[in-house]
């Protein structure tokens, strides 16, 4: 009986994992595959979809599911480890670390900054002035307010 309960628990655990972890890779993207995986798992962790202590699929399982090479998934996990978002224990797999709210915020601010830089770069390419970009952002910001 114990066995059945245990298997059922794993089943639930896996089922919930499948539902929670959507990773969608694009060949058209300029980002390398491992960056795409890192970004998506990172945002799943930062937005709370994956919570502290939650197991991630093994490197080999993820490679199989995404039909990509083991080295690629390994690299993605290594990046996440470096950022302190996940922990890998030999023989047990990888887990989401318990990160504090400040850290999450800091990480998200960093990412926001990068996106802003991209906007500025694109704006410069279109020969927009700083004021024009600011106005544009303000417009969109206010539109967003009306939506909500």
């Amino acid at each position: 009986m114990k066995h059945i309960v245990y298997i059922y628990y794993i089943y639930i655990k896996q089922l919930s994992m499948v539902m929670q972890m959507n990773i969608i890779l694009s060949n058209a993207s300029n980002d390398p595959i491992y960056v795409q995986i890192t970004q998506q798992i990172r945002s799943l962790i930062l937005n709370g979809t994956l919570s502290s202590g939650e197991p991630l699929p093994s490197i080999r399982q993820l490679a199989k599911d995404l039909q990509i090479s083991v080295i690629t998934t390994k690299r993605a996990y290594e990046e996440l480890e470096k950022e302190g978002l996940i922990d890998s224990v030999v023989g047990k797999g990888s887990f989401v670390t318990g990160i504090n709210a400040d850290f999450v915020r800091e990480q998200r601010m960093k990412r926001l900054e990068q996106q802003m830089l991209a906007v500025i770069k694109e704006g410069k390419a279109l020969r927009l002035s700083l004021v024009e970009i600011q106005q544009h952002i303000q417009l969109l910001y206010e539109e967003g307010d009306m939506d909500t």
């Binding site: 390398p32 039909q67 990509i68 080295i71």
Partner: peptide, 22 residues
């Protein structure tokens, strides 16, 4: 392109490279 970890490239009987795809 999808699943290989390492690629060994032979050309005219010589090994051009044998490295990870990354």
């Amino acid at each position: 392109d999808r699943i290989a970890d390492y690629i060994a490239f032979l050309h005219h009987g010589r090994l051009v490279f044998n490295e990870s795809k990354e």
